[in-house]
Amino acid sequence: MAKDILFYKLKQILFDEEWSESRKLAQKLEEVNNKIENRKELQPRVEPILNDKVDFLQQNFSSLFGPQVTRTIKTQIKESQDEVVEALYPIIGKMIKKYIARELELLSEKIDRQLDNAFSWENLWRKIRAWFGGAAASDMIIRDSVEPKLEQILVIEQRSGLLIGSFSVTPSIDQDMTAGMITALKSFASDAFYREAEDLEMIEYETFKLLIRNFQSFYIVAAVSGALTQHFKNHIDDLILDFADKVLNKKQESTAIEKEMKTYFKKSVDANQ
């Protein structure tokens, strides 16, 4: 027993310093462990390092990962062409549309330039008409080939779709039903596309267009055939606005409106011919 005690004391003398170091080391280890496992403790220490790394990645992303990303995208496109086409189709469609519109503008300008250089009587006459009419000469050429014509005007009550009045150059199917169907179509369009605050303004066939002009309690539909030029559109807009102001806003009987429409729009159609 006394031997054991002596041995222990000897150990104490010999290893005292090591034990103390070992205890300190264990304590330090526990502190480090606490810092690693405790988010609050670890965060302020790690964050600056991570931020530096993120900054470095942001600045050097293309040189570090560029080739891999390009390869991945290429493979992805090859493997799922249909999806890519579907995703790009609307964007490409818009680009093509924009391109065609721009090309048409250029063509129109080119026609104008060529006309400026031409000296034929026909061209001179066309230019005179264009000057007086306020239309571009290029519009005049198009108009000469497929001249726009006002075919029909319908004045329709907004909500009910009831026909208030109509004027038609050419015979048409039942206008009451047409008025109802156009109203239903307008309602459908605004419901289907969640456009309650907006209104349908045009229905377009190839060479036939329905221009729709909306007012508070009624709307007016102008059916136009031929190539609709901006000039003719403006003319129709002026007619409609003038008619709405002069006739419709005066709260007349339906029969009186019908009569006024015939006189008013017939005069305009005759003048346009």
Binding site: E157, R159, S160, L162, A184, S187, F188, S190, D191
Partner: peptide
Amino acid sequence: VPQSYKLGAH
């Protein structure tokens, strides 16, 4: 049924 179809009905 969309309300706009019903509006204005007599």
